[in-house]
Amino acid sequence: MSGLEIIAVILGAINIVLIVRRNIWNYPVGMAMVTLYAQIFFDAKLYSDALLQIFFFIVQIYGWWYWLRGRAQVGDIVVEALSWRARGLGVAGLILATASWGWMMHRYTDAHFPWWDGGIAMMSVAAQLLMSRRYLENWLLWIGVDIMSVGLYWVKDLKLTSALYVVFLALSIWGFEEWMRVRQQKAVSA
């Protein structure tokens, strides 16, 4: 456990609480967190996760812009849901992306746990894109990412980060429930 990891963990917890609360300030906090985790994961030879942090940084900018545009008249962030067709296509795309990325990390790098790490990375990309677009289903993917990450980071001796992902798991469940409640309220009032 390093000082860098401690700071990243604190920022990560703040970030997820802000997302669950649909607070737009999650984005600058998230950008600081992913900057730190890029270095942490690179040092741990979790290259998929290190590269993922660069993606996260870019998509944080996009999400911030999109959330600014996606406010209801009262200022709340509007929650959307994917169609069944979009869900099916998303799952198929995620399986293909995970297989391709895991193979590439296995074949061309000295990455530790390239398939496990690659699966986390591809699910995270999909979840982040869905979250940026305010889709409820992002939380289901984050729950899967969190479960997989707890084990990987524990094995890689990133114990504090593993513990953070236990907290992320609880917050992701809370986030799903909260966003589902907001979505249902919208349907009732419509």
Rank of each mutant, 00 (worst) to 15 (best):
residue 107 R to L: 04
residue 91 V to E: 06
residue 86 A to V: 01
residue 102 G to H: 08
residue 131 M to K: 02
residue 111 A to N: 12
residue 163 A to W: 09
residue 183 R to K: 04
residue 143 I to K: 09
residue 151 G to I: 05
residue 122 M to V: 09
residue 167 V to E: 03
residue 81 A to E: 06
residue 178 E to S: 14
residue 102 G to Q: 08
residue 146 D to P: 05
residue 168 F to W: 09
residue 180 M to S: 15
residue 99 A to I: 03
residue 160 L to I: 01
residue 163 A to H: 09
residue 126 A to F: 08
residue 84 W to I: 09
residue 125 V to R: 04
residue 94 L to T: 14
residue 162 S to H: 04
residue 105 M to H: 09
residue 146 D to T: 08
residue 154 W to T: 00
residue 185 Q to K: 12
residue 185 Q to H: 15
residue 145 V to M: 03
residue 85 R to D: 01
residue 164 L to K: 06
residue 170 A to H: 06
residue 163 A to T: 10
residue 138 N to P: 09
residue 161 T to G: 04
residue 123 M to C: 15
residue 137 E to C: 02
residue 135 Y to D: 00
residue 130 L to G: 00
residue 181 R to H: 09
residue 166 V to Y: 01
residue 152 L to M: 09
residue 184 Q to L: 12
residue 86 A to R: 10
residue 180 M to T: 11
residue 155 V to Q: 12
residue 114 P to M: 10
residue 182 V to D: 13
residue 143 I to T: 09
residue 108 Y to M: 02
residue 90 G to E: 02
residue 168 F to Y: 14
residue 102 G to R: 07
residue 176 F to L: 11
residue 94 L to K: 11
residue 93 G to P: 12
residue 97 A to I: 01
residue 99 A to M: 11
residue 108 Y to R: 01
residue 95 I to R: 03
residue 133 R to V: 02
residue 162 S to P: 11
residue 112 H to V: 13
